[in-house]
Simulated assay, not measured.
Amino acid sequence: MISQKAKYALRALLVLADLKTDSISIAEMAEQHRMPRKFLEQILLDLKHAGLVQSRRGVAGGYSLLKPADTITFGQVLRLIDGPLAPLPCLSRVAYRRCEDCHDEASCRIRRVFGHVANATRAILDQTTIADAQADPERVGRILGGIQGAA
């Protein structure tokens, strides 16, 4: 399950991708899209430090995307906000840790099943961009169909 913070981060990026103006203030985004302002401030700061969004000061200031929406993946955002996507520590690519109760990873049936889950999850999240969700919500289904067809 993704955190509420990750969900707000994805929503904020979708709002920024949909902008018809140059930028939007945190106050406007929070009010118009029913997100807690203080939480949104923290999230946008994290996204700014990661180089995904930019901010501009002043009356016409606010936040906007720094990178194109078609280059920002759901997987990238989830890893930034929530950390590794792996359901087990022994499956993480960036934060690998052997399970304390495991005697043999190679023969672990639980790891094998969740390995398939992790690979499918990564494939979908790393191929689905903010632009995909913005323009074509059904793209995720087509990505999943392509993954299942290739398996």
Rank of each mutant, 00 (worst) to 15 (best):
I43D: 04
R142V: 05
V140R: 01
I26H: 00
Y8D: 14
Y96M: 02
A69F: 08
D82T: 10
R11H: 06
A135F: 10
A133D: 10
Q76E: 15
D126H: 08
I72G: 06
T73V: 00
A30K: 00
I124D: 01
S92T: 03
L13E: 04
I110M: 04
Q32I: 01
P87S: 09
V113G: 00
R93V: 02
R97P: 00
C99S: 03
V53W: 05
L47F: 08
I2Q: 15
Q134G: 05
G62V: 09
L45A: 08
V15P: 03
K5L: 11
G58P: 02
A17R: 02
P89G: 10
T128H: 09
R93P: 02
I24G: 03
D18N: 14
I2P: 11
Q127E: 14
L14S: 03
L13W: 03
R122C: 09
Q148E: 13
S64D: 01
G51Q: 05
D18R: 15
V53R: 05
L66Y: 15
M29W: 05
L19G: 00
K5A: 07
G75C: 11
E28N: 15
H49V: 15
T21H: 14
G51M: 05
I24N: 04
H49L: 15
A30T: 02
R139C: 04
E28S: 13
A131P: 01
C102F: 01
F39N: 11
I2C: 09
L88K: 08
I24L: 08
V53T: 07
R97W: 01
E138K: 11
E138G: 05
D18Y: 12
H49R: 12
E138V: 10
G146V: 01
R111S: 01
L66V: 06
L14A: 03
E105K: 14
L88I: 06
K38F: 03
D136I: 02
A118Q: 14
I2S: 13
G61K: 04
T128C: 14
G149D: 12
V94G: 08
P137N: 09
Q4S: 15
T21D: 14
H103N: 06
L85E: 11
G146Y: 12
A50D: 13
S107P: 04
Q76V: 09
G51A: 07
D104M: 00
T71A: 13
V140I: 14
T128M: 13
L14K: 01
D101Y: 06
R109P: 01
V140E: 04
R98N: 07
R142E: 10
A133F: 12
L40T: 01
Q54A: 12
A106P: 04
I2D: 11
P137Y: 08
E31Q: 11
A133V: 15
P68Y: 13
P89Q: 10
K20C: 05
K48Q: 05
D70R: 11
R11T: 03
H116K: 12
T121P: 03
A9R: 07
S107A: 06
S107V: 00
Q42G: 06
S107D: 02
G145T: 12
I2M: 13
P68N: 13
G115E: 12
Q148I: 15
V140D: 00
